[in-house]
């Protein structure tokens, strides 16, 4: 199913919002306004946006340590995201989580996660809840090539297939688990072939081609909603930045490999595709869209900066839900 031009423009807007958000988050992190660490999603935008464009509002996703893109694609509020990165009380987690732990349960974003592979069972549990609810909801687990070697991946796929859970397992194969090349840790190059062992479809798509991602996700969502079970989608992609934006972060990847992947940038690919369709996007419209997005990111930063830090004693809030004896 090919996305309509209107939907493609929305996909472009979301991908560019992720791009501009990550640029600004990196800049403010290096300036010392954002703490801890930032894992940039730049280069992989088509995966989050392509998959989430195939979802309905009630559907749920579980993200990874590299989670900003999934949040934005699922419809998270940029003000509250930026405020969380800034450690402010108006942030999604009231300053308790930071970049690696943004969640918004109201929009079905069940959390980013600092444990590689840790989110896969959580997503599978959301898929079980969706099946028990019987309302046609689906759940999506985003994870990387590194997590695909964890036991939780194999255990979850086996359970989801055995119980026919309404799940999408979306592997963002960016070829590196932190600094370790997948080539050195995977017995087979492709992750999708592992689906065969769990009797589910395993699909390989160009993760930098948003239409391909969207098509694969749409097919998998339809299968899940029809009660036919899970699908494993492997999106071949690449992160432009190092594992984290920390200045001391190692960069083991060959420079020519990074540069080569930058020529496969998913954003200009969609811009060109839209321009080629008569009247769907002009240079002026694209520039205007980018200006609007930059202004929106600036206002998110202004919101964060205008927000107060939490009171120190707020550290004691929310250890437990409800009254504690």
């Amino acid at each position: 199913m090919h996305p309509s031009p209107e939907m493609q423009r929305e996909m472009l807007r979301q991908m560019n919002t992720i791009r501009r958000f990550e640029e600004r988050a990196t800049q403010d992190y290096l300036a010392g306004d954002i703490f801890g660490v930032v894992h940039s999603y730049i280069g992989e935008e088509a995966v989050a946006v392509g998959v989430c464009s195939a979802l309905e509002d009630g559907d749920q996703i579980v993200s990874t340590h590299r989670g900003h893109g999934h949040c934005i694609a699922k419809g998270a509020d940029l003000d509250r995201m930026m405020a969380e990165l800034y450690g402010r009380e108006t942030g999604y987690c009231k300053g308790k989580g930071g970049s690696m732990h943004i969640a918004d349960f109201d929009i079905g974003m069940l959390g980013a996660n600092g444990i590689v592979g840790g989110g896969i069972p959580i997503a599978t549990g959301a898929g079980l809840a969706a099946q028990m609810d019987g309302k046609g909801r689906v759940a999506v687990s985003f994870f990387g090539d590194g997590a695909s070697n964890a036991g939780s991946f194999h255990e979850s796929l086996n359970i989801a297939a055995t119980w026919k859970l309404p799940m999408l397992y979306v592997c963002e194969n960016n070829r590196y688990a932190a600094n370790t090349a997948a080539a050195a840790t995977h017995a087979q190059e492709d992750v999708a072939t592992r689906a065969l062992g769990y009797d589910m479809p395993g699909v390989i798509v160009d993760g930098n081609d948003i239409s391909a991602v969207y098509d694969a996700a749409t097919t998998a969502v339809a299968r899940a909603r029809a009660g036919e079970g899970p699908t494993l989608i492997e999106c071949k992609t690449y992160r432009w930045g190092r594992h984290t934006e920390r200045p001391s972060q190692a960069e083991p990847r060959p420079a020519n490999e990074v540069e080569e992947w930058k020529t496969r940038d998913p954003i200009p690919r969609l811009v060109e595709a839209l321009k080629e369709q008569q009247g769907q996007l002009t240079d002026e419209e694209w520039e205007e869209m980018d200006r609007e997005i930059l202004a929106r990111i600036s206002s998110a930063v202004a919101y964060a900066k205008a927000s107060a830090f939490p009171k120190p004693e707020a550290a004691l809030d929310d250890v437990f839900s409800g009254e504690v004896a």
Binding site: L110, I122, A126, G127, S156
Partner: peptide, 14 residues
């Protein structure tokens, strides 16, 4: 490991 993690996801889903 996985069914315990699934409990977290199911608990977060009501």
């Amino acid at each position: 490991n996985t069914f315990t993690g699934m409990a977290v996801g199911a608990a977060g889903s009501g």
